[in-house]
Simulated scan of single mutants.
Amino acid sequence: MPSKNTKAPATVASKQGPADENVFLFIPNLIGYSRIILAAGALYFMPEHPKTCMVMYSVSCLLDAVDGQAARYYDQCSKFGAVLDMVTDRCTTACLLCYLAIAYPSYALVFQFLIALDVSSHYMHMYSSLTSGATSHKKISESSNFILRAYYSNNNVLFAFCFANELFFVILYLLSFNFQSSTFGKVVLYSLAAVTGPVCAGKQIINCIQFANASKSLAEIDLEERKAAKKN
């Protein structure tokens, strides 16, 4: 009997523990808030202070790789954190592309298309993942496109594409300024643009695949729900 009494409080405590947690104060979500602050600062300095903007924007993007690791390490994965991360990524990229559309008016339509593709494909993917009952938008079913599976199943591949994609846009941002720069500096920027440009293009192809795959998944869910409704 005494042994049962000693175990009971522990069981109750373990059940009450998660209820006492504050998801908004999870460590990965705190990192997410810092990303938002850095991104806001980058936007503030974007028009006239490219170097400061570049540093703040780059750190915000690099922290994108840290919050996920923190979530897994501290066992603090959450739907709120996943959506916060996704929304932060989409908003920061969209804001930078808006600036590029102004800096390069001849290519404004291209940047507008990239914003639309980025937001729509990720929203469709996130929505289809949640609707299908997936625990994470990075959990890709075996029936999905093999390129999409390879993209989301390997964190190194995912980080490389996202990093190169953002770096290419940052380089375009820096090149839009006519500030004095050494020949070596210009060579470095153009060389990085030549390397990251194709990766950025590949990222847009993945976005298209992501949009198509999510559309297919949602259509299949619709058909299943209609069949179930007719049976009832």
Rank of each mutant, 00 (worst) to 15 (best):
K4W: 09
K4L: 12
N5K: 15
N5C: 08
T6A: 10
T6L: 12
T6I: 14
T6D: 11
T6H: 11
T6P: 02
K7R: 11
K7C: 06
K7L: 13
K7D: 04
A8S: 15
A8F: 10
P9C: 01
P9Y: 08
A10C: 05
T11N: 12
A13Y: 15
A13M: 14
A13I: 13
S14Y: 10
K15I: 15
K15M: 15
K15T: 15
K15R: 15
Q16W: 09
G17K: 13
G17A: 14
P18D: 08
P18N: 09
D20K: 12
E21Y: 07
N22R: 11
N22S: 12
V23Q: 11
F24A: 12
F24L: 14
F24E: 11
F24G: 12
L25F: 13
L25E: 07
P28F: 01
P28G: 05
N29P: 09
N29H: 02
L30E: 06
L30V: 11
I31Y: 07
I31N: 08
I31C: 06
I31G: 07
G32Q: 05
S34G: 09
S34L: 08
R35N: 01
R35V: 02
R35E: 06
A39G: 10
A40G: 07
A40R: 04
A40V: 04
G41Q: 01
A42R: 05
A42L: 04
L43I: 10
Y44W: 08
Y44E: 03
Y44S: 08
F45I: 05
P47L: 10
E48D: 13
H49N: 11
H49S: 10
P50R: 05
P50K: 04
K51W: 07
K51H: 10
K51Q: 11
T52L: 01
T52N: 00
C53F: 01
C53H: 02
C53L: 05
M54I: 09
